[in-house]
Design a protein around this nucleic acid. Sequence first.
DNA 1: AATGAATGAGTATTCATTCAT
DNA 2: AATGAATGAATACTCATTCAT
Lengths: 211, 211, 211, 211
Amino acid sequence: MPRAVREQQMMDAAVRTFGQLGYRAASMDEIAELAGVSKPLVYLYLNSKEELFTACIRREAAALVAAVQAGVESGATADRQLWSGLGAFFEHTASNPDGWAVLHRQARTHGEPFAGEVAVMRDEIVEFVTGLIGAAAREAHGGPSDRDAELLDRDVAGLAQALVGAAESLAGWANDTEGVSAKEAAATLMNFAWAGLGNLMRGVRWVPSAR
Amino acid sequence: MPRAVREQQMMDAAVRTFGQLGYRAASMDEIAELAGVSKPLVYLYLNSKEELFTACIRREAAALVAAVQAGVESGATADRQLWSGLGAFFEHTASNPDGWAVLHRQARTHGEPFAGEVAVMRDEIVEFVTGLIGAAAREAHGGPSDRDAELLDRDVAGLAQALVGAAESLAGWANDTEGVSAKEAAATLMNFAWAGLGNLMRGVRWVPSAR
Amino acid sequence: MPRAVREQQMMDAAVRTFGQLGYRAASMDEIAELAGVSKPLVYLYLNSKEELFTACIRREAAALVAAVQAGVESGATADRQLWSGLGAFFEHTASNPDGWAVLHRQARTHGEPFAGEVAVMRDEIVEFVTGLIGAAAREAHGGPSDRDAELLDRDVAGLAQALVGAAESLAGWANDTEGVSAKEAAATLMNFAWAGLGNLMRGVRWVPSAR
Amino acid sequence: MPRAVREQQMMDAAVRTFGQLGYRAASMDEIAELAGVSKPLVYLYLNSKEELFTACIRREAAALVAAVQAGVESGATADRQLWSGLGAFFEHTASNPDGWAVLHRQARTHGEPFAGEVAVMRDEIVEFVTGLIGAAAREAHGGPSDRDAELLDRDVAGLAQALVGAAESLAGWANDTEGVSAKEAAATLMNFAWAGLGNLMRGVRWVPSAR
DNA sequence: AATGAATGAGTATTCATTCAT
DNA sequence: AATGAATGAATACTCATTCAT
């Protein structure tokens, strides 16, 4: 069997094992067995547990980015692009839960070689989302006339951050709650984001009322 | 040294170690050394690694809930209560990063005894937030005149879920990002929540436009 | 509580624990708890696990010897003495299984301090039984006319040895088999011994027939 | 070195260690060192201390049964079969004291996984002996004319049980006593068994005389 | 291209034992 | 007469990794 194929088999097994058990709890024995090969072969191809995990992170990160990018309706209005991107994100993570677990949970909970690896992709996505949000903002609500761009950027970054957290939370909730589909969850999120965005653009902010 | 004191020392050490290294990577040796006691004493008082971790989760969960409840300005308007609770949440997580890491990251990435432990606390908080949001909605925007209460309830539940998820995500972001204070994070989140809530009340929703 | 009483409580607990779990598997913690005292007190009174076990062996050995001696109908015919002694042995071991386990099983399966301790008692009993058997032999079958005394002594020793093994085996069998009382088992054994003894006395022996 | 060979080496070391020190006192470290391999290899091949012990019990039980069966002179008269089987038993236990210690002493003194394992083999042997004794009885002393068959059966069962127990006890005695050969032990036992059997057949029994 | 055989370095857990009071 | 607090030393078991083929 050609090397490339074997490598993918191994990484499939590794992603599944890492995703479900975590980096430390996953054992090379288990991964090799799940991949249907002997342990030395895993080492021959992927060198060490650390490199194997890193390779998994990279592959899953690339797959997630590709899925989101492929999902975005290019040429559509910015809000529609955001919507379709969010949908693609939900779909990919839902259909590839182990990969998502590796990226979102495992890689970030274990020391430095890995967290940085994910941060790269995260920055890529945040930048992409930030671009979309920025465009959507300008398109739907006009340019930031009375607000300086820097402040807006920080808010947009905060929004992106909040969006991911909210999305993950909603995904779990939608799964566990009768009668709430992933699509509805996405719509709720979109609503949330859109309204906040609108206010942001208009310079309307909530401020603590006097006591 | 009395048992109760020693136990707290041990749990301090454990929270720090678990929070930074994760459940599996943390070793009982390390925890005992950091606590300044011998390993057998840790076992004598806390029985096993699993129970120790569970005890940490419970202590940190209780501390977080207590901090948030203490932070809420009772008697104030609902939005102000939400705001003050959020602020307390961000402040507690910022000043207690290891405890927060145990709850948010480590407990949830490792198998079932632990994830459930956190879920209990999380549900408590979600319910609390749901109450606040519901009250805020009624208070600030009037009763649900043209929308049936059931639909509103579902939206409020979704919003609460999203809000908590977003807050969790922002807590990490605020900790890691230079120049973002807990207060600012709370304000950002409040803005989004409030705007989304307002739209919700008014029946304004974002819907995918025709292609 | 006076020392002597406490010591007996501790040894009761120890015999039970050692008898059921064995020397190594029994823990001082368990023994102390079962005795209802703190561990340091056990050490204060009985010094070490080894000494505690030795003390148990001695106490149980003395009790067994005393029970058998008390059971023997002094002044009766030798066969009747043997019979009553066997009965007392069966009764004592049956009603004190943990003590018997300590002597027969545990003490002999663990290294040298202990095996020797039991050997002392065993020799005492074997000698006692040997005396009885010898007397019975002479009484019932006449002196060893045509056989030299030394050879007889060896046979008697073998018989005593076999008797103990057979007795133990029969005790277990009688306990597990419906409708076989300990007394019947003892009678069977007595028969066995008596017949063999008779032949022995008469110089009748089984020899391998030519093929 | 092929696995099968290594496994036997390990079990040799284990039988020796378990036989001399007992299940609890024997350490896997010691066994591995005695076998000339590293500890992980022992675990790789034999999984756990418990399974290793069980494997030892089974191997030694099978070896003992095989030795006895091989020793029985098939086709000979029943008494001669019994004699030769007994001789083989004493020879095997004498030349393989650690294996015998594992079976007779260690396996039975430690909890339930092990005691049952030995009981199976023991029952097999008892049944075999019962068959022989029954045959011998009929052959040498004629059918049970004046005694009902059922009563005889119970007596034969008791005798077999006692015989095996006595043999077990004598095995230890012969090993420990200068100048007692396996053959002599077998002869002694045979004498008793034969005499007891003879009396049994003839309906002669020892009964406690009136006081 | 692939594996059976093997291990050094850990990890959680337990236990007999002591000290200060 | 009695105990709460504490530990050094061991023990079963695991895992990432390599070597010879």
